[in-house]
Each structure stands twice: as C-alpha cells, then as structure tokens.
Amino acid sequence: MSVHSESDGSVPSVSPAELHELVAGGESLTVLDVRDRDEFEAWHVDGPAVTARQVPHVKFIQAEVTGDAADLVGDVPEPIVVVCGEGEASAHAAGLLTDAGLDARNLAGGMDAWADLLVGREISDVPGTVIQYDRPSSGCLSYLVVSGDEAAVVDPLRAFADRYIADATERGADITYAIDTHVHADHVSGIRAVAEASDAEPVLPELARERGLAFDARPLADRETLDLGGERLRAVHTPGHTSEMTAVEYDGLLFTGDGLFLESVARPDLEDGDEGAPDAARRLYRSLQETVLPFPDSVRVAPAHYSEAADRAEDGTYTASIGELAARLDALDMREDEFVEYVLADMPPRPNNYERIIETNLGRESLDDAEAFEIELGPNNCAATR
C-alpha cells in the first residue's frame, strides 16, 4: 500500500482508492472508525478481511493527556486505517497511534471522500466496450455501454453524471440513452442529470408511469429494443423487486438491476411494504424461473448491487454467468412457497431515506446536489438476505 503524508508531513494517509484496493484484495487490516456509535452502526467500511472497530474521537482526546492511545485499539491487525466524517478527527487519532508505534494511517477526506469514490472496470468478451462502475461505499453498480459512436448508461448515479459523459467522450461516443432498470430506492438516479448534461434520452420501464412518474422519459416496454451503434439493447420485464423492474439484455450480458444479484435475490417490500411483499415475492419467483433462468447458461449477469459476500469474476468485475448462479444460489432451486418464505425471512433494514429517494426518482421531490448526496449515504440493502 502506498502511503502519503498530510500537509504537515506528520500523519501518514491513504486515499479512498487505495483503501478500496486493500479491502477488495482481501488484505488483513483494521478500519478504526472514530465517529459516534450510531453513525458507525448505520454505515461503515467493512470487508471479508477487515476488522471494523469503533472508538469515539473523544477517547483519543483524553488519551492525548494520559498517553495511552495504543490501549484504545487493543490487539487488532495492522495496518490500522482511521476514518471519520471528513478526515480531520481521524488524522488526529492516527497521529497519536503513529506516535505510539503503531502502523496507522488516516483515510484522506474521511467517509465523505469514501462515498465519492467510483471505480470503473471493463467487462471482458463483449462487443464494443462495457464499463462496470463500482461505488464501494454503497455497493452500487452502474454501467456504460459503448457501441461505435453511441453509448448508453444503465442505472447511473446522479453524483457521478459527469463521469459517465466524460468516459463516453473519451471513447469517441455520445450518450444516446440514460436507462434505469426500475425506480431505485437506495440511491438518487442519474438519468435526468445525464440527460441534462448531454443529448441522452432518459428511459424508464413503462410501468413506472403507474407508480406516479412526474417527468418526461421514454417508456420502455417488455421486449422492446433500443438501437445502439449497430448493436441492440433489449428490455426484459422481470417484476418482483418492483412492479416495473426490467432487465436489459446486451449481446451476452443481462443487466438485471435489483432482480438478481451474485449472492442473493431481490427483496420484495420496497414498493408496497410488508403487506404487499408476499405477492411481490411470488412475482419475483416467476420472473426468475420463467424469464431469467431460461437464458443460456453462458449469459453473464451484471447486477446493480453487490455485497462483501460477492466474488469478482476473472476480469475483476462483479459479474457471473446464469449457469454459475443457478448452481450457486439455493434460492434459484426452490419451490415457490419455499422461495417466498426464504426471501421474507431475513430481510435487512430498508435503505436509508428510501421513501424520499423513491419520491425524488419519480420526480415528485426535488433535492439539490448536496441533499441528494447526503440522503443516499449508507449500504444499499436491496437484497433479500443479509
């Protein structure tokens, strides 16, 4: 891990991108969070080999007097990456730990900078160029598809609208379509922001109108195709997570949105709540069994989210073939009643501010950029199981 120094040269630091590579690479380390307990429990950096520990900054202020900062962390794996909201309190704590002889570094910019990280990786063996964008702070995935001089974004995040446009331009393409697979509940959609900053046409499944869509967007019907630089995008209606949920097929890839993930299936309660969840779970079961699984085993699923339990493919992306998922996920081999019981049994908390996010994505509430960034912080929690 490369280490940088703060401006005064005293506190080693790591960037969000460097921290992501450590976490994704499975390196053993401790992420020490000095925010308050409720902030930590709501959202923190984690990973398969990460020891996540919370010690409030006030204890380090006290330890500066007593000289026992090392005792606050105990026997945890090093290196220790210290984090806070903006990188200031954590710099102080990291400095005390460094002075005590520990291998400690500050996360530059804190959790705000962590939330602002978007990592792009190309998906191999597809026509044209397909980039999968990974937002490690939330597990959100979005996509740029480039074919000839045209491009489309799928499930873009508003906070990164300029990034998609710049990456398309760098590849000699203009964005023709900005597509959402459904009305998202975990992040603020970027389809309008991309359209406003380019010539892209915003696209949503046609049933989004029945949910009260309040802005102009091209309705995408089941099995409808969109021409893209000599290739085609094809809509495949897969209700269950939401009534309008629609996967998008692109020559060997299936952008499944929140219908099917690499490690789980969708939760069914974000549109009609607990009361409507059983019926939605049955619709999800039929979508998976009758629409998704009949695709050839070689078709690769490219979901809209991942968790720390997901494994990356050989090309470094969060993708897997239909055949792999059919063999891996028990939920795909269940009877309908068993499936419904399974997806309803252990759902995590609903995404932070999900009702406001839905209203915003339907165009019925307006948020400025700072508000939009703030309300979507935290884990996506769109899968059925923890």
Rank of each mutant, 00 (worst) to 15 (best):
L141C: 08
L141T: 13
L141F: 03
L141K: 14
S142E: 12
Y143Q: 12
Y143T: 14
Y143R: 13
L144K: 10
L144G: 06
L144R: 04
L144S: 11
V145S: 07
V145Q: 06
V145T: 04
V145P: 02
V146P: 11
V146F: 12
S147H: 12
S147P: 01
S147N: 15
G148C: 11
G148I: 07
G148V: 12
D149K: 11
D149G: 07
E150H: 12
E150K: 13
E150Q: 15
E150M: 12
E150N: 09
A151L: 09
A151F: 05
A152H: 04
V153K: 01
V153F: 14
V153I: 08
V153M: 05
V154F: 07
V154Q: 11
V154H: 11
D155M: 13
P156K: 10
P156E: 11
P156V: 08
P156T: 11
L157K: 11
L157R: 12
L157M: 14
L157I: 13
L157E: 14
L157W: 06
R158I: 00
R158A: 15
R158M: 14
A159W: 06
A159D: 15
A159K: 08
A159H: 07
F160C: 11
A161R: 05
A161C: 00
A161T: 07
D162Y: 02
D162M: 01
R163H: 14
Y164R: 07
Y164P: 02
I165E: 05
I165A: 08
I165T: 03
A166W: 04
D167T: 05
T169L: 06
T169S: 03
T169V: 10
E170G: 07
E170Y: 06
E170M: 07
R171K: 13
R171N: 12
R171Y: 04
R171V: 01
G172A: 05
G172M: 08
G172H: 02
G172S: 09
A173F: 00
A173P: 00
D174F: 00
D174K: 04
D174C: 00
I175E: 01
I175G: 02
I175Y: 01
I175K: 05
T176Y: 02
T176A: 14
Y177Q: 06
A178R: 06
A178N: 07
A178V: 05
A178Y: 03
I179W: 03
I179N: 02
I179V: 14
I179A: 00
D180W: 06
D180S: 15
D180Q: 14
D180L: 14
T181R: 04
T181I: 04
H182R: 15
V183Y: 01
V183I: 15
H184G: 07
H184D: 12
A185I: 07
A185E: 05
A185D: 09
A185T: 13
H187R: 08
V188Q: 00
V188L: 02
S189H: 06
S189Y: 09
S189I: 02
S189F: 08
S189D: 10
S189G: 04
I191G: 10
I191A: 10
I191Q: 09
I191E: 12
R192T: 13
R192N: 11
A193I: 04
A193G: 02
V194L: 08
V194T: 03
V194G: 10
A195M: 09
A195G: 09
A195P: 01
A195W: 08
A195I: 10
E196W: 00
A197F: 05
A197T: 04
A197N: 13
A197K: 15
A197C: 05
A197W: 00
S198C: 08
S198D: 09
